[in-house]
Simulated scan of single mutants.
Amino acid sequence: MTTVSDVRAGRMSVSIINGVATMEICNLAQRNALTRDMCLEIQELMPRLDADPDVAVVVLRGAGDTFCAGASISELSSVLMDPQPDGTSVDHLSGADAAIASLSKPSVALVDGACMGGGWQIASACDFIIANERAVIGLTPAKIGIIYPRPGIERLVRLVGHANAKYILLSGLTFSATEARTLGLAADVVPSEFFEEKCAALVSTLRSRSRFSMHAMKRLMDAAPSDVDREWAEAWSAMPDSPDMGIGIRAFLNREQPEFTWRPAAEPHPGV
């Protein structure tokens, strides 16, 4: 296990075990609310995890029985509108969002308990959200007189559509896990008694898949419209050169489990 930062109030804890990096939001005194420093820590940690050859999958979750209560109310201004010497301001929550969304590796948010406001924004920056059936999700800026950050609103509209996005944001209602899945706020809901087991099995499944396939398809789905044609051409032409294609075909024909070997260019290949 590799510990990147200590477990203490208002910090992020990261462990790396068997290719899976688990980042835990640790601020139990404030129901895992995100402070300015925690948002900055996410921005610092994510590129390191992306570059780490020992990491194949990134998991985001909250400490204890709460995922995240959103941005810390006592630090709300410094989290969302931190004034800079040049007169501008910085939205550190959206900076943390961008750092998670920029991962080239698959990422999953495991949501247990409350996932409120900015908590959903950083969870949704992962590739998908798996929610415990006891989880509740709410986007509540209208209850405290603020505007949800632009990246969060834009992703919300993409995931749930304009009408549902307006319903969620303007009402400020809190939804059960099942309701959240129906709306498109979560990809799946798992019964509480099986949550840890099912999530561990899912992460193990991701760990066993072809990194070439996952990295390429994630990049293609996230590509900007202006880059889609170029990204597709590059990915398609790279496929025959990837060892994973031959490994996967042979394993399928032999009814075996494939052991894929492709690694990103920045990572050492097996035997190198």
Rank of each mutant, 00 (worst) to 15 (best):
C68Q: 02
S104F: 08
A98V: 11
L139R: 00
S94V: 05
S89V: 15
P83S: 08
M38D: 10
A101E: 09
A125V: 06
S74L: 12
L28N: 12
H162I: 11
D65N: 15
S102H: 03
G117R: 09
P53R: 03
A71C: 10
R134Y: 07
G70R: 10
A63N: 11
K105Q: 07
V59E: 13
A98L: 06
D91S: 00
M38T: 14
Q30R: 15
C126V: 04
L93G: 04
R134C: 06
D82K: 03
D127G: 08
G62K: 01
V160F: 07
E41C: 10
L110D: 00
G62H: 01
L45I: 15
Q121T: 13
S94T: 05
R134L: 08
L139W: 00
S102G: 06
D91H: 01
A29T: 13
C126W: 02
A165T: 03
G117T: 10
G87L: 06
P53V: 02
D37Q: 11
G118E: 02
L34R: 04
V111C: 02
D112C: 12
E44T: 14
L40Y: 07
A63Q: 12
P106Y: 06
L60C: 08
L103E: 05
L34H: 06
H162K: 14
C39A: 08
A123P: 06
M38N: 04
A163Q: 10
Y148I: 01
D91P: 01
L40V: 13
I73C: 06
I153L: 15
S74D: 13
V157E: 03
G62L: 01
I73L: 14
S104A: 09
R61H: 11
G118V: 09
E154K: 08
N32M: 06
Q43E: 13
L139S: 00
N32W: 02
L139E: 01
G113M: 01
V111F: 00
A33G: 09
L49M: 10
L80A: 05
I25A: 14
K143H: 11
V57Y: 07
M116H: 13
N27I: 07
I130M: 14
V55Y: 11
V108I: 15
W120C: 05
V57Q: 04
S107R: 12
I42R: 00
A96Y: 04
I146G: 00
A114N: 12
V111K: 01
Q30A: 13
D86N: 14
S72H: 12
S107I: 11
A99P: 09
R31C: 10
A99T: 09
L49S: 02
R31D: 15
L76G: 07
V111M: 02
S104Q: 14
S72I: 04
M81S: 12
A123K: 08
D112W: 12
I130E: 06
L139A: 00
